[in-house]
Nucleic acid binder design. Sequence first.
DNA 1: GTTAGCACTCCACCCTGGAGAGTGCCAAGC
DNA 2: GCTTGGCACTCTCCAGGGTGGAGTGCTAAC
Lengths: 348, 348
Amino acid sequence: MVELTKRDQEVLDAVVTDYINTGEPVGSRTISKRYGVKVSSATIRNVMADLEELGFLLQPHTSAGRIPTDKGLRFYLDFLMRYKSLEESERTMIRQAFQGIHKDLRETLRKTSRILSTFCRQAGVVLWPKITSTRFRHIEFIRLRPHQVMVVLISKSGLLHNHILDLKDDIGQDELDKYSHYLNDLLENVPLGEVKRRVLEEMKKEKVLFDELYAKALDMSQRVFQENLESGDVFIEGQTNLLNNPEFSDVQRLRRILEALEDKSRIVKLLDMTLETTGGVRITLGSESELKELREISLISSPYWRGDTLLGVLGVIGPLRMDYSRIIPVVEFTASLLSELLEEPEMV
Amino acid sequence: MVELTKRDQEVLDAVVTDYINTGEPVGSRTISKRYGVKVSSATIRNVMADLEELGFLLQPHTSAGRIPTDKGLRFYLDFLMRYKSLEESERTMIRQAFQGIHKDLRETLRKTSRILSTFCRQAGVVLWPKITSTRFRHIEFIRLRPHQVMVVLISKSGLLHNHILDLKDDIGQDELDKYSHYLNDLLENVPLGEVKRRVLEEMKKEKVLFDELYAKALDMSQRVFQENLESGDVFIEGQTNLLNNPEFSDVQRLRRILEALEDKSRIVKLLDMTLETTGGVRITLGSESELKELREISLISSPYWRGDTLLGVLGVIGPLRMDYSRIIPVVEFTASLLSELLEEPEMV
DNA sequence: GTTAGCACTCCACCCTGGAGAGTGCCAAGC
DNA sequence: GCTTGGCACTCTCCAGGGTGGAGTGCTAAC
C-alpha cells in the first residue's frame, strides 16, 4: 500500500466530497477555494496529478476536473469519511415509520425496505432471515391427493415454508397427523440447522428401528429437510428512486442496472456475501463483488439480529456516488430498530 | 357515434398500422404509396383533416404527419385490426417454455408472467387466483405463544394463506388441534366463498350450542374468514422490457410508469376491472381506466380458468403503441395453455 | 369529388464560434 | 526544494444560423 501524505489525503477527501455533492468533475480551484486546503490551486494540480498516477483519481477528458476511481472511493470510505450522526428529528421520523407495524414478519420486512428506500432516496433491500437461522416450531403434513402431500414448516420466528412431496405409498391423513404429532414433539425448539443431525440420531434409536410409523415419519422429515431451505428471498423496494440519480439518466445504463436488480438471485448472492461478517455497516462497491452487471452500483448494508442470532441483512442500493455520510447512519439505525422490534415478545 | 366511410376507415387503419410499426407520425404520401389506398396524397390529406376534426387523429405539430389519438386507437382495435394467428413454431416455443414447470402454483404463475414478458417483449402480469375462488382443504391452528395463534389456511388449489390471531383466552395446542380437526371435517370441500355462511349455519345447530369446544372453534374460524382474503396479489415480470420502447426513453415519463407499476395495488385494481367480463382477450387503454398514472400504458389481458371456474387474469402491459396483432394471439394462447395446465390432476 | 402544384411551416441536423472551466508546464519566489 | 502566479492550450457546452426534408393546407384545374 502506497503511503499518502496528509495533504494527499486532504485533497482526495475534498475531491470525493465535492464529487458526491455535485456529481461533476472537481477542479483544482474549487478545492483550494472551498475546502480548507491552505495551498494554491497550482499545488493542488500537482497533488491531483500524483493521485491520478496512483489510481485514486481519473480525468473524464483532458481539461476536465477529476473524479474518484473505485480505488479512490474505497480509500475515502475506509479512512477519510466522517459521518454525521443522525439528527434526533430523523431518528424520530424513522421510529414513527415503524409504528403501526403488524405482527406479520413478512410485512415488517417489506416495510423496512420501504423505509430504507424513502429515507435514503435509493432502492432499499432486506434479505429474509434464513429459515435455518431460527428454531423449529411446527410441521404439518396435508394430503392433497393420492401420493401427494403438502408439507408446511413453521419456524419459531413465524416463517413459513411450504413444499410438495410425491410419495411412493399413499398415506392417509390420519396417519400423516400422527407423523406430525411425533415430529412436533421430537423437534420442538431444535435449531433448524440441526434438525438433520437430530433426525439421523433418532433413526438409530431402538424404538424407531422397530416401529414403522416412527421410521416413516423420520424418513419423510428427512426428505423435507434435505430440500434447500437456505435459498434466501429478498425485498427490493423503491427501485424507481434510482431514476433520480443523474448518473442513471442514460437509458442504456439504467437498463443494465434494473435488469440486474430484477434477477433477485444475484442480489441475494451479493447480500449473502456481506452476511459473513460480524461487523456493523459495510459498504460493497459493485466492482468488488465479481458480479460485473453490478459494477456501477454500491451497496450499504448492515446485518440485523434477534438477540444474538444473526437473521439477515438489510441495506440500500444506489449509484457509486451516494451521500454515504448520511445513508450509513440511516442504515445503521434502521438495522438496530428492526433488531429491537424483532426482539419484542409479541413480534413473531 | 359518427359514421366513418369505408375510405375513412382505410386511412385510419393505415395510419395506425404504420404508426405502430414505426412510432413516427404518418404522412399522407406514405399512405397513398405504401398501403393499398387508390387515391392521391392530396385526397388523403383531406380525409386526414376530417379524421382529425373527429378526434381520431392528431398532429404533434403543424407540418408533421398524424398519429392516432386514444379514440382512434380504440376504433382501430374494435373494428379494423386483423390479427395474425400464431405460427405453429411460436406455439411450440411457448409450449416448451411451459415444460418442466413444477407442481408449485406460485412458481407456475411467476413463470407464466415471465413467458408473457419474453414473448411479447413487454412487461408480463399474472393476477393470482383469489383464494375464495377455490375450495377449502385444510385449516391449522398453531400456538405461537400465550394468547397468540398462527392460522394456516390451505385451499384445494394449494394456495396458502397465513395469519396471526390474538386471543383473549390462552388456548393450548392440544385444544387447538381439536379445533382444526373439527373444522377440517366440517368444511371439507366447501367453496371458500361460502365458508362464512356455512359457519353461521353450523353455529345455530344444537350440538354446537351446548358444546364449548365447537363454539370456540367456530368462533375462531369466523375471525379468520372475516379477514380480507380477497386482496389479490400479482406477478409483474420483465419491467425492464419497457425500457426498449422508444416512447419511454424520456426518463420522466418512464419514471411515472415504473412508479405506477411499483404500486401493485393499482395494477391489481386494473386487472380486477378486466376480471368481470367473461370474454376472452380484452384491451384496456390506460386512459380508460380512471387511473391517471396509467394513462400512457395499455393492457392486453385474458382470464384464465380451471375447468369452468374463473381463477384470475393474465396479460401484457406496454405502451399504447404495441404490436397488438401479435401480442393478442400470444396472450390468448398463453391463457389457454395455463388453463389447460391447471386442469391436470397432478397440478395443484 | 379528385388531383397536381405550390407556398409555407416546422423540425432535425450540422456547422461554427465563443465562453468557460480546467489543465500542464514554466519560471520566479521564499 | 517546495510553492506559486502566469500563460498557453485543450476540451466541452451552448447558442445561433443555415439547410434540407417532410409534410401540410390551399387553390385552381380536371
